[in-house]
Every structure is written in C-alpha cells, then in structure tokens.
C-alpha cells in the first residue's frame, strides 16, 4: 500500500487512491479545494484546475519531481510520493490565478443569487482569491433559456465543471442537456427548451458548485442562512428518501440531498422527494443536521463570520504571495 506525504503529513492509502482522496483522508487542512471533481460521478474532475498540487517527489522508485503542477483529483498516488499543497508557493500562486480566471466572467451577483451562503465559488475565492479584480472588460452574457419547471439555469454563473452533464449521463435515463459551443462561449444548454424532465434531474442542483443551476421552487424565497436544515426520511419507491429539509419557521422551503463534509451528496434523491413533498407530515424527522461552524448557515448572518483560513490553516504558516498586499 502506497505511503504518501502531503504538506509534510504522511498517510498510507489503498492502491489507486488519488492525491485528492488521500489528502481528504488526512483532513481538511491539507485537502485541496475541488470545484469539478465529485466522488460519486465517474470521470469527473480535471477541468477546473483548482486542485492543482505540486509533486516534489514522484515516488520511492523514481524520485524525480513532476515537471508541471498536476490535478490532484486525477493523479493517483505512488509509494513514497511527496506532495506540496498549501506549503508550495507555486500551488498557492496557481490557485489564486485559477480563482481569478473563474471569476473573470462571473457576474458576482451574489446579493441576488440563491446559492450565496452555500456556494463553493464564494468559499474558494474567500480562501484563495484576491480582493480586487484586474479586469475592466464587459463580462460575458448568454441568451436565457428555460430548461424546465423545476430547475433554473443561470449560464452566466456557470464555471463549466461538467458535473451536471455527468449526473445526467450516469444517474438519469437520458441526457438531454450538454455543453454547446466552444471556448469561452461554451454553455450548458438543451436543444429543445423545457426539455430537462426526468425523475432524477433535480440532482443537478445539488452537484452544481455555483448558482448556475438552482431550485425554481425555492427561487427568491429566502437567503439560505435564514433557513435551518433538519435531517428527515420517508419511504420512497424511487430513491433512498433521506434528505435535508430546510425550514424557515414551520415551513419547509427547500429539500436537498444529505451532504458530507466535502459538500458532496451522500445519496442522490428523486424529484418527488425534492420538489413535491414539502409538508412536515410527509416526513419522519430525525433532528438538526450538522453544519460546519465556519458556514454562514450556522452563523445565521455574515457579521461575526470568521475567515475560515484561520481555522483550517492553524498548522500551516501563511504564505506571502508576491504582489499581494491588499488583504
């Protein structure tokens, strides 16, 4: 079994484990962020480049370092491999630039975005981004399309992680949406409007790391940090029936799948559970869900929010990035 060292911390993992998975086993303080990789979706990952790490020693047999930064989600560990994540200046600089690229054409409409508060792009830019933008060009826009009654598509917010494409490929019967066009004009789209209609289509909302695919039934109802997640289950003949109910007062505003520490759903749920069963009486309540204490959802507001890096990087000396003196 290969032994791998990430940011100076060593772990023994099973053969075929990727660097990202090994880092997650060590703990959140060394785990690289991932915007496109999703454990439950095959062939996901490798696109967003946020999880780039530096391999300073290839393996015990071949100790040469890898010439380029590698995507940790798609690189399997070798015995004796040494990896630099936050302790590598190259990685910190590359990640900062990836955040800059991802935000380059992002509308930054967080104040009106339903995803705000549980958005991975927000977290990512908070952790690794810069406070200022260096572009003054007009941001990219797309023609609006209606993809169906349950899911709202905001293409301008999309970071093209391909997760929703993989969900449609792997857990629904027929994929009717995909990536069209090329380069920075690429967009998630359907050939026929209102075409996304499938019992499991709602899962694209859960896997979307940003606010590109949001729940139409929850649209503009509430900020997520004013709602509280309650774990619940029901007998469902289509899916596992295990969900989070998001309450505001007595009212269930939204139903989502249960998510793990890395923000990935534990089991996919069907559209009936997600969109059509929003009464407390439909569910067996299990109790409040665990929410990370760094999340704005547990803080209820942004005011006393402590920058997460101060929790997670307690054993890592913060690196000074060249030209970064505005924070």
């Amino acid at each position: 079994m290969p032994i791998v060292t990430i940011d100076g911390r060593t772990i023994e993992v099973a053969d075929g484990t990727t660097i990202l998975q090994a880092a997650r086993l060590i703990g959140p303080e060394v785990a690289p962020p991932a915007m496109c990789f999703y454990t439950k979706l095959k062939t996901s990952g490798g696109y967003c480049r946020t999880c780039l790490v530096e391999v300073t020693k290839g393996s015990e047999k071949d100790p040469r370092p890898m010439p380029k930064l590698v995507a940790s989600c798609r690189t399997t560990v070798m015995d004796g491999m040494e990896v630099g994540n936050l302790k590598s200046e190259k990685v910190v600089a590359a990640r900062k630039s990836v955040v800059e690229f991802l935000l380059l054409n992002h509308p930054l409409d967080c104040p009106i975005c339903d995803q705000a508060g549980e958005c991975y792009l927000q977290d990512l830019s908070y952790d690794h981004g810069s406070a200022k933008t260096r572009t003054d060009f007009e941001r990219r826009t797309f023609d609006k399309i209606d993809i169906g009654p349950y899911i709202q598509l905001h293409m301008t917010r999309c970071i093209l992680c391909y997760r929703c494409v993989k969900v449609a490929d792997q857990i629904t019967d027929h994929r009717v949406h995909g990536v069209m066009n090329r380069g920075d004009q690429s967009e998630i789209s359907t050939y026929i409007e209102k075409a996304v209609d499938n019992d499991f289509s709602g899962n694209v909302i859960d896997v979307c790391p940003v606010g590109a695919l949001t729940d139409k039934t929850f649209r503009f109802k509430s900020r997520v940090w004013f709602t509280k997640p309650i774990k619940a289950h029901r007998n469902c003949n289509k899916c596992c029936g295990k969900v989070n109910l998001w309450y505001k007062g007595d009212e269930v505003l939204r139903v989502t799948g249960l998510k793990d520490q890395w923000g990935e759903v534990e089991e996919f749920i069907c559209n009936t559970c997600r969109f059509d069963t929003k009464k407390t009486s439909d569910w067996t309540i299990e109790g409040p869900s665990q929410i990370s204490r760094t999340s704005v959802i547990s803080a209820n507001h942004y005011e006393v929010f402590v920058k997460p890096t101060e929790f997670t990087l307690n054993n890592v000396t913060p690196l000074q990035i060249e030209g970064e003196n505005n924070s």
Partner: peptide
C-alpha cells in the same frame, strides 16, 4: 477562438 473551453485557465485566459 479555438480553445475548447474545458479547463478554466485556457477558457478564460485566452480571451482575456
């Protein structure tokens, strides 16, 4: 014009 748009540095950087 020719970037495929798969990974972020190339998709956004070439246009920039």
């Amino acid at each position: 014009h020719e970037s495929c748009g798969q990974c972020s540095p190339c998709r956004e950087g070439t246009g920039w």
